[in-house]
Design a protein around this nucleic acid. Structure first.
Lengths: 210, 210
DNA sequence: ACCGTAACACTAACGGTTAGCTTTTCGAAA
DNA sequence: TTTCGAAAAGCTAACCGTTAGTGTTACGGT
């Protein structure tokens, strides 16, 4: 991801600005609460203009979910990069377990607490999850080893994301991954490999390709 | 709670005001698009103050989902009011099928189109769905015939809501209900009735009681 | 050394939402 | 009937996130 050769002063400065904004925002949010800190305040404290802030982050909420951009990537890769003939669900289960562990780790806890206590952030994250589910659905639908209907792919993708979300909130997250993935597995197994492009595929419960 | 006799002029006027706001809003939104119509405009056209509008509706989005408040009720009742010993999933499947039919019916189509084409409305509806899933989870967890872990209840509730949401968007909604509920059924069947308050129940993957 | 442009700044505004306060309108006690 | 408390509605003015419009600087390739 990081270019070994210095990628020019310009891009370094840009990255530094972005980082300074993100750091400042997170610090202020944790200190005084997400809702109690305004955008203008964050910008002032980071010593940038408000417009600059929005040039780096699409919204106030995006300031908080700065790093979790690779979530989508990891899920998709768990599908596409799994070793040949490895069944789908265990591969996803492994990845989700790792993600759940990461979210419930020590350093991440206060951030997570801030998210669940702010309605705006919860809503934003819910929306993110749906996007992730769509990407995951596309990855599953694309895999030649798993020829399922578009609806089945989208459904199982949502189930997997639900399993992640619910496990994270559960009292014993790792046990919850076990429990929820037993259900996901069962749901997946009743979707027989559809013989040839079934109705739903052809006329498109549209799985976005982006 | 509700008085059977004519509930007084005051409450009738209040209801009338609320209805006029909702009708005006929906008309303007359908005429010119949700994003193109401002709150101040809706208020002016309905001949009320902006503050009055917000006294009746919590947000601009709530103007659109005015009637769909009973959605939650219907799902919960499908669980609690089903005939003795009727299995859970078929009862839910029947209700979801009816709801999907209602949403894809003629009169409802333009409203639905407006919702899916507006990011703000989509996000709001996603958030609503999660609330519905929580209520459904509580209903399932409360049923004495189905003693499952809290996590299992919350998971199956989410799956059911997902089935609804995905079926509605599918090319052939009724066929999608069949397909998705086969998966939901399978997921439910692997959750054995837990013998006695298991770990997850006792220490609370918290199913809200509200 | 020069120029195009990417990054940033400043101002001003828009649209949803709320606070503060006044006015109207009903319901019921006196 | 009169009176009074309170609910409902109104007005003003602002807050907050976000964006458009318009410069200004500083970097990178020529």
């Amino acid at each position: 991801m990081t270019v070994p050769a210095p990628p020019g002063r310009r891009e370094r400065k840009k990255a530094a600005t972005r980082q300074k904004i993100a750091d400042t925002a997170l610090r202020l949010f944790l200190e005084r609460g997400y809702d109690a800190v305004g955008i203008r305040e964050v910008a002032a404290e980071a010593d940038v203009a408000v417009t600059t802030l929005f040039a780096h982050f699409a919204s106030k909420e995006a300031l908080v979910f700065e790093q979790d951009e690779d979530f989508e990537q990891r899920l998709v890769k768990a599908v596409t990069d799994r070793k040949p003939h490895e069944p789908l669900i265990p591969a996803l289960r492994r990845e989700i377990l790792a993600l759940v562990r990461h979210c419930t780790a020590e350093g991440t806890a206060p951030i997570w607490h801030m998210i669940v206590t702010s309605p705006a952030l919860r809503e934003y994250e819910e929306s993110m999850r749906l996007r992730h589910a769509e990407s995951l659905a596309t990855a599953i639908a694309t895999d030649p080893d798993l020829s399922r209907s578009a609806t089945a792919c989208r459904t199982i993708a949502r189930f997997v994301i639900d399993a992640y979300s619910l496990s994270r909130e559960a009292a014993t997250p790792e046990a919850a991954v076990d429990e929820t993935f037993r259900m996901v597995e069962a749901a997946w197994e009743v979707t027989g490999p559809s013989p040839r492009t079934p109705d739903a595929d052809a006329r498109g419960g549209r799985v976005q390709t982006g």
